[in-house]
Design a protein around this nucleic acid. Structure first.
Lengths: 224, 224
DNA sequence: ATAAAAGTTCATGTTTAGTTCATAGAACTT
DNA sequence: AAGTTCTATGAACTAAACATGAACTTTTAT
């Protein structure tokens, strides 16, 4: 199960958020300011953090920046009372992954949390093994009995994603969201191009195949 | 295919919202005030309505209240420039399901729309199971004990629609509206052609049959 | 600072899906 | 039974989705 740290100085909001997260089955830890949060992070594994931007002592943006520079890479969901574009930009540049404006809709929060965790899990499963083939995220390589294929990052991520759930059809949009990021604006054809290059490089691989599902997207299918 | 009515007097905001909704695959109708909205509602099936609270003639809250008392029960997402709790309360008590404060973040809007549709259970019917046969919307496939039949989108949608309510007779117009979209202008014979092709592909399927009801339309009937 | 590699965009060609239309055939009417 | 209306169907046509080569931009490494 996932550990979520809720960092918010307003007791009511914190309890409310915690309540909904627990109801959903998450393990919740909490802190009422940045310093407390740092202590919790020191002693627990945290999968995702939700933090308010306005807090006494260490505020949310500062906290985020500190964490990132300390090497923490869990997703961070920011809560803010302000609504300007500036805030959005500030938040993202300091390392925030997503943000919500008060008043918070609990369903929306749960949606965002689950989306962030889903996206983050890509990075945490570091290896896929299939038949006599291994994909290693750390080195961006695909290794078979007789060869080691080193792939460019995007191509590797794309392949990794597809193979993480063979048979599941991914739409171009899903792939863009999960590999390029939820705020990516790129042309969907970009996905096609990466698929094409992958297929070229994978011609000698027997273990699986990337299949186009017209009208929907792409999927990887294991060979019989 | 979901029909969403966007009711907003500011042309720019209306276009912006419509654009993002269409990009996401929704079918969009619009109105620039409450009276226009009522007319649209009168003549189309609407799955969800997005409406501004401040509008000339009939405002959003009044519109909502009217609709509810007229028996309409689709989810309503309110847009408001104000931020007070009073407004929130007013909105909810008049029958609004969710609300957003201007300026609207388009990602947030799409999240809310999809959450509302999901909650309304409209979006949840992604699968039909019958006897030893399964129809899966996510892959456009019909699976039986011994075969997996991959269908083109329109054919699949048509079959899915018919099987979603076996025995119900759908007119060609209803099918066009709900699958092609309310503004489709295609020839009604198009439906016939898809039906024909479906029948060809389904000859070996025992579970049901597509029956012509002369003068009315088509229906799917389960085999005894 | 420069070259190489990676990533993106765009225009074009191909394939598949979807639509239209004309004609044949079935079912209802009187 | 003949006429009328509605449906079935093959085939031609149009549109949409995908593949691909190549130019262009960004990032990375030296």
């Amino acid at each position: 199960m996932f550990n979520i740290l809720v960092c918010e100085d307003d007791n009511n909001i914190r309890r409310l958020i915690s309540h909904y997260l627990k109801k959903e089955g998450y393990k919740v830890l909490d802190a009422s300011d940045g310093e407390e949060a740092l202590q919790v992070l020191d002693s627990h594994h945290i999968d995702l953090m939700i933090t308010d931007i306005m807090m006494p002592r260490v505020d949310g943006l500062e906290l985020t920046a500190d964490l990132r520079s300390a090497g923490y890479d869990m997703p961070i969901l920011m809560i803010t009372a302000k609504e300007t574009i500036e805030d959005k930009t500030d938040g993202f540049s300091s390392g925030v992954d997503d943000y919500m404006v008060k008043p918070i809709d609990m369903d929306e929060m749960l949606l965002r949390v689950s989306a962030l965790l889903r996206r983050a899990r890509i990075a945490s499963d570091k290896k896929i093994e299939m038949k006599d083939m291994v994909l290693e995220y750390d080195s961006l390589t695909l290794t078979t009995k007789d060869k080691v294929l080193e792939l460019p990052k995007k191509e590797f991520q794309l392949l990794f994603k597809l193979l993480s759930q063979p048979k599941r059809i991914f739409t171009r949009q899903q792939l863009m969201d999960e590999i390029w990021g939820f705020d990516a604006t790129s042309d969907e054809r970009t996905v096609d191009v990466h698929i094409k290059r992958l297929r070229e490089k994978l011609t000698h691989i027997e273990a699986f195949e990337i299949v186009t599902v017209r009208g929907l997207g792409y999927k990887a299918v294991k060979s019989p």
